[in-house]
Structure formats: structure tokens, C-alpha cells
């Protein structure tokens, strides 16, 4: 499709200060493109949580956002430690974040649950010692 849009971001794992930047840029673009506030909010929450997870748990990674006629698709790919027990990680409040990270306000253990809640589909492909790829879709046709 000729009117697909792609955004690519390299998410820096060293830098807590820029954490959330990719989400802020995507939000701005979606706004310029005139998407409804509800869609923008859901994309913002899901992408922010995924982006933060790559920074605090996986030493950074790549974020790709694609907009086509039917979906906004967010793919977050890292080569971090992987998630040993996905159903445990999906539980609200479960977090392995270190104390120093919690002191910054992260580590509520609500990231993955929120990503699932605010998207229409979420797939987690993870292998311990190899990395994690999360694909989230938000449907555009009501």
C-alpha cells in the first residue's frame, strides 16, 4: 500500500532521560495526521510502556511503528535477557525492576498489563538470553 507510514526509532538503553522520547514523537505525528484522541492515547500508553521496558529491562532496542488503513502496529525488538515466565510477567504489580529504577517512578508492574489492555492484540515472542519482540496492534476501523 502506497499510503503506509513507517517510523523507526533506536531506543537508547543507557539513557533514562530520553526514555519516552520515541513515544512522544509518534504521538505528535499521529496528532498531525488527525487520528482520534482515543486512538492516540492508546498508542501512547502502549508504546511508552514498551519503550520504557526496553530501557529498564533490556538495555534498549528498536521500535517500529507502522500505520496502514486498518491498524497502527507497534513492534518493539530487543536483544535483552528475555522474559522467563511470560504469564507471571503479565500479572499486575509483578516487577523485577531494581530499587534505583523504582526510585525514578518505574517498576509499578503495570506496563505489560497496560500494553495488553490498551491494544487490540499483543504478541510476545521472547527467548531467555536472546531477546524479546513485542508486536501490538490497534485497529483503526471502528
Amino acid at each position: 500500500m502506497s499510503n503506509n507510514l513507517n517510523f523507526h526509532f533506536n531506543v537508547d538503553g543507557e539513557n533514562f532521560s530520553s526514555a519516552g522520547e520515541a513515544s512522544v514523537v509518534v504521538k505528535k505525528k499521529l496528532r498531525q495526521l488527525g487520528f482520534p484522541p482515543d486512538i492516540i492515547r492508546r498508542v501512547s500508553i502502549a508504546m511508552y510502556e514498551g519503550e520504557i521496558n526496553m530501557v529498564i529491562h533490556a538495555n534498549g532496542g528498536d521500535a517500529d511503528v507502522t500505520v496502514d488503513d486498518d491498524y497502527i502496529t507497534i513492534v518493539l525488538k530487543d536483544t535483552g535477557p528475555g522474559i522467563p515466565d511470560v504469564s507471571l510477567a503479565m500479572q499486575e504489580g509483578y516487577s523485577t525492576a531494581r530499587e534505583s529504577i523504582r526510585a525514578l517512578g518505574f517498576g509499578a508492574g503495570m506496563g505489560l498489563p497496560n500494553m495488553k489492555k490498551y491494544t487490540d492484540s499483543m504478541e510476545i515472542d521472547t527467548t531467555v538470553g536472546v531477546g524479546t519482540t513485542i508486536t501490538m496492534k490497534i485497529a483503526l476501523n471502528k
Binding site: F16, G20, V24, K27, R41, S44, I45, Y48, L104, G105
Partner: peptide, 13 residues
């Protein structure tokens, strides 16, 4: 909370 991440969340929300 007064670190930079607060600003990102304020902006996104």
C-alpha cells in the same frame, strides 16, 4: 516525582 520522566508522561497524557 521530579525527574525528567515526569515531563514525558505529562506530555503524553
Amino acid at each position: 516525582m521530579s525527574n525528567i520522566n515526569v515531563i514525558a508522561v505529562a506530555s503524553l497524557t
